[in-house]
């Protein structure tokens, strides 16, 4: 299958600038700006209620933004552009009283496929996802995981240029979650641009090229995963110890718990120099290692109210 193309070419397929969204007097999103480049997988991260779904709905024209620019391929999204879009919303659902194949063919037709093309693609997809024997079964007779797989099929069946997935693995068991990850990787290899909302940081690290972290409707970090890790401490030393550790000209103590500390480099010293400095100051070292904070750790610190690690 070849990827559908949108008219016009620029590096950013999605461009959001100065986006503000308010419901009555309640401001949900405040001055949000970011781009998603063609062909990249973009992680759209944030805690519940941080404004991710609202941003997606505004991007897709479901909500009218209070202010700002939200463009897909250089223009405001219209339902007619849906042929190049695959959208898996957070609120899942299809026509539950209809058969799997009827629903898939209906959406395939709306996305521009021929009836035969939609049917043929659907049957292949159902075969791949172990649902071949469910084609004529009503959707409400399927388990929720099976329904999700059908919905994902509907989302990708037009081989979209832009794939927006709002918590795609929600409700999936590990096996199906792995299958879904493979499907997303396939789409990525086929050239799709993927925008993914998820709370599974391992998924982000596995799939995403760049991420944005939203908190209370504002961006708190934006860039590649490395850039975000650097923003939240960069190279960090984790120490289990007994004694007292204080800030030095070569490092700052960014996190201090009982017998555990995280140190952030403040100059180009290497870890052996710092280890030597700690030992010489009388600290008894039990465990010493270096590395960057994982996205999961950053996420917990941003949304868990732990302010010990602030962006530099």
């Amino acid at each position: 299958m070849s990827s559908a193309t949108l008219a016009g070419r620029s590096e950013a397929l999605v461009h959001i600038e100065g986006f503000k969204m308010a419901f009555a007097n309640h401001v949900v999103i405040e001055d949000l700006s970011f781009d998603i480049n063609r062909g990249e997988t973009f992680g759209f991260l944030g805690s519940n209620g941080s404004g991710k779904t609202t941003t997606i709905r505004a991007l897709l024209g479901i909500y009218q933004p209070t202010a700002g620019t939200l463009h897909i391929d250089g223009r405001v999204f219209r339902p007619e552009d849906g042929r190049q879009l695959g959208y898996l919303p957070e609120e899942r659902g299809l026509y539950k009283k209809e058969s799997v194949i009827d629903v898939m063919v209906y959406f395939g037709r709306l996305k521009g496929l021929s009836r035969q093309g939609a049917k043929s693609w659907s049957l292949q997809y159902l075969e791949r996802t172990d649902l071949a024997d469910k084609a004529s079964v009503r959707l409400d007779k399927l388990s929720s995981g099976q329904q999700q797989k059908v919905q994902l099929g509907v989302t990708i069946m037009n081989n979209p240029e832009l794939l927006i997935l709002d918590e795609p693995t929600k409700g999936f068991d590990p096996v199906n979650r792995n299958l879904l990850m493979q499907i997303i990787e396939d789409q990525k290899r086929a050239g799709s641009t993927v925008m993914m909302v998820t709370h599974q940081m391992d998924e982000v690290e596995r799939l995403c090229d760049r991420v944005i972290l939203l908190k209370d409707g504002r961006s708190v970090a934006y860039g590649t995963i490395n850039e975000v890790q650097d923003l939240y401490g960069g190279r960090t030393i984790r120490v289990r110890y007994s004694g007292t550790i204080s800030d030095s000209p070569h490092y700052l103590v960014t996190l201090r718990e009982r017998n555990y500390a995280e140190l952030k480099f403040t100059d180009s010293s290497d870890e052996s120099a710092i280890l030597r400095e700690l030992v010489e100051s009388g600290v008894e070292i039990r465990e010493f290692n270096t590395g960057k904070l994982s996205l999961n750790e950053i996420f917990l610190r941003v949304y868990g109210g732990d302010n010990s690690t602030k962006p530099i």
């Binding site: 897709l60 479901i62 999204f77 339902p79 959208y87 919303p89």
Partner: peptide, 8 residues
Amino acid sequence: EMILTTVD
């Protein structure tokens, strides 16, 4: 949401 992003 699925339908509104697919058909006017």
